[in-house]
């Protein structure tokens, strides 16, 4: 059962206090977008064995959504950061690169 540190209130929350929200950093495609873009937004999800960025809400806590960088294979957590981020913070990216040299980087 995971523990993730909420970047808003500083609590190391356990999984039962959190609600999962799937892949992070999705770009919304609304009216006017073509079918491929909409399909990708709606359905195409990464499912890597390794580094993954995901959304979590501190549901039984401060109620805030945050993002986590995590290894799906070892469950190592590289860091958490606010949901108001369009991409992972540099320090987390650097940490992942150091720990997972084979990682191709955030895309």
């Amino acid at each position: 059962m995971l523990i993730l540190s909420c970047p808003y209130c500083g609590i190391d929350a356990e999984e039962t206090e959190l609600a999962p929200g799937g892949e992070a950093h999705l770009k919304r495609f609304g009216p006017g977008s073509d079918d491929d873009a909409f399909e990708a937004y709606m359905f195409a999800r990464k499912n890597p064995k390794g580094v993954h960025f995901e959304r979590w809400r501190h549901a039984y806590g401060c109620g805030k959504w945050f993002l986590a960088a995590r290894c799906t294979a070892t469950l190592e957590v590289f860091g958490t950061y606010p949901a108001q981020s369009t991409e992972p913070p540099v320090e987390i990216v650097e940490k992942i690169k150091a720990k997972r040299p084979e990682w191709k980087g955030f895309s």
């Binding site: 609600a19 919304r28 959304r55 809400r57 109620g63 959504w65 949901a83 108001q84």
Partner: peptide
């Protein structure tokens, strides 16, 4: 309520 907060916090912050 969670749906509203999701959009407010994560998309239209």
């Amino acid at each position: 309520h969670a749906w509203m907060e999701d959009w407010l916090q994560c998309e239209w912050w």
